[in-house]
Simulated scan of single mutants.
Amino acid sequence: MTTTSPRGREAQPSAIAAPRQTRSQQGLVRMLQAGRELIEASGNLDDLSINDIVERADTSIGAFYRRFDNKDSFFEVVQDAAMQEGLAHIRETVERDPAWRSNDAGTLADAVITFYVLTFRRNRGLYHASLLRASQRKASWDAVKSTNHEVLAMIVPRLVSALAQSRGIKADGEATQALEFEVRATLQMILGMLVNSVLNDPGPLSLSSRQLRSWLQIRVRRCLGLPDG
């Protein structure tokens, strides 16, 4: 993605001029890829220089500034591209993965945790950099939150429906609202743990731990009154 319309931020003029030549377009793609890799590796935008980006992308400082006002605007484009890729991935997964078409609440709950754990592992450095920028009163974490709202819109109704079936509840009115609160509160707790793991890694709940996914799956099942599986 090569426009700056980051989620959770007010619309701004594009930080990237439309490339006029294929060569210029290729340079832009290389810069975005280089930035994504460097941010993921460092987890801190302050540790990253524009020289690092252009050297890795085999381009120039001039090419960078023809596209971006500064490093912050570059980060926002890289972040927004990652969020768009994540949404495309979950949409494809929901459509193709049999677990997401299941109406078994335990199977769906496990699939949700698998998705979130893999997403946090894939974006560990980007999320860390976003959280650090948010602590400086920059709205970088808003983009992640906005993207997650879209993910929850896909996840929650499926899990509520499956949970209602497992409990023999007719999911309408107050019953639906109660189940939705239960699901959303459980997922908020899990997401809080994953965010904490990003900021405090390594720890007992390290993102790289083999036990992380199964440990979270068991907790979610228990919170939702499902068997451990």
Rank of each mutant, 00 (worst) to 15 (best):
Q33V: 12
G35I: 00
R36V: 05
R36T: 09
L38M: 07
A41D: 13
S42T: 11
S42H: 14
G43R: 14
L45S: 05
L45D: 02
D47V: 11
L48P: 03
L48T: 06
S49V: 01
S49E: 07
I50V: 11
D52A: 03
D52E: 07
I53V: 10
E55K: 06
R56D: 02
A57I: 01
D58Q: 13
D58C: 13
D58H: 15
D58A: 09
D58W: 00
T59W: 04
T59F: 11
S60G: 07
S60T: 15
G62Y: 10
A63H: 05
F64Q: 01
F64H: 00
Y65V: 09
R67E: 05
R67G: 02
R67S: 13
F68H: 08
D69E: 06
N70M: 14
N70S: 15
N70Q: 05
K71R: 13
D72W: 12
D72E: 13
D72R: 13
S73C: 03
S73Q: 11
F74I: 02
F74L: 07
F75L: 04
E76L: 07
E76V: 02
E76K: 01
V77R: 03
V78E: 03
D80G: 06
D80P: 08
D80I: 06
D80E: 13
M83E: 04
E85W: 04
G86L: 12
G86A: 11
L87I: 03
A88T: 13
A88I: 09
I90R: 03
I90Y: 00
R91V: 05
T93R: 15
T93Y: 10
V94Y: 08
V94W: 01
E95N: 14
P98V: 06
W100N: 03
W100R: 04
W100H: 04
W100C: 10
R101W: 04
R101H: 09
S102V: 01
S102K: 06
N103P: 09
D104Q: 14
D104E: 14
D104G: 08
A105Y: 06
A105V: 11
G106I: 03
T107Q: 13
T107P: 08
T107F: 00
T107I: 14
A109F: 10
A111C: 12
V112D: 03
I113S: 06
F115E: 01
F115W: 04
F115K: 10
Y116F: 07
Y116N: 09
Y116M: 04
L118R: 14
T119C: 14
R122T: 02
R124P: 09
G125S: 04
